[in-house]
Amino acid sequence: MKTPASSFTACHDCDLLIARTRLKKGQSLNCPRCHAKLFHARLNPIERGLALAITSLILFLPANLLPILSLSIFGQQQSETILQSVLSLYDGGLAIVAAVVLIFAVLVPGLQILLLTYITACLQFRINGHYLRQSLNLYHTLHGWGMLEIYLIGTLIAVIKLKDIANLEPGLGLYCLAALIFTTCLTNSLFDIQHAWQVFGQRRDTQKAHL
């Protein structure tokens, strides 16, 4: 009889078979062979994830709708939001680049925040979300494709490029965007999708046992 799979785990980067150990809160387990981070027993990841998701949700709309920068030159003014930069690219004839910016700077970050809110709310309040599995899968797939922080650095470079020929004023949107990036970074270090999968799997198992 083979040892059950539940007493082991494997490294996702090098497939090393590792005996499962119970981690204390705050401890992390790295792969002894390739040093990939396998587990990190974070403190209340679901609860903190939910708090961060709601904060991000509040910041998301102003970050997208309020002007990020405004420029004035020879008495003329022009302000810019993320969505406006998408439209300008589209008007300039670059539909694909417009789509790329829309997807990576607006849709993916927005979807990630919505998914995180749904996932953490379902797990925290023990709601039977019908789309919980799909949401977890999608959240996992989208990892790394949200590029808000790169958009912010891009904005700063544009400021430096233009500062000699025009007057630039940061808008409220810029501060919301910076705050949103901060909450996104916090989410990445405090929330843990692997932990969410574990809770989801356990709930699924107990539900099946009751049937």
Partner: peptide, 27 residues
């Protein structure tokens, strides 16, 4: 992901510098 930087710089510049005949940036 960081090489996407230039695309976002262009996106911001194109949206900001649209002042008709005075100055304009097109992608």
């Amino acid at each position: 992901r960081w090489s996407m930087l230039d695309i976002f710089v262009i996106a911001v510049l194109v949206a900001l510098v649209q002042l008709g005949s005075l100055a304009s940036i097109s992608p």
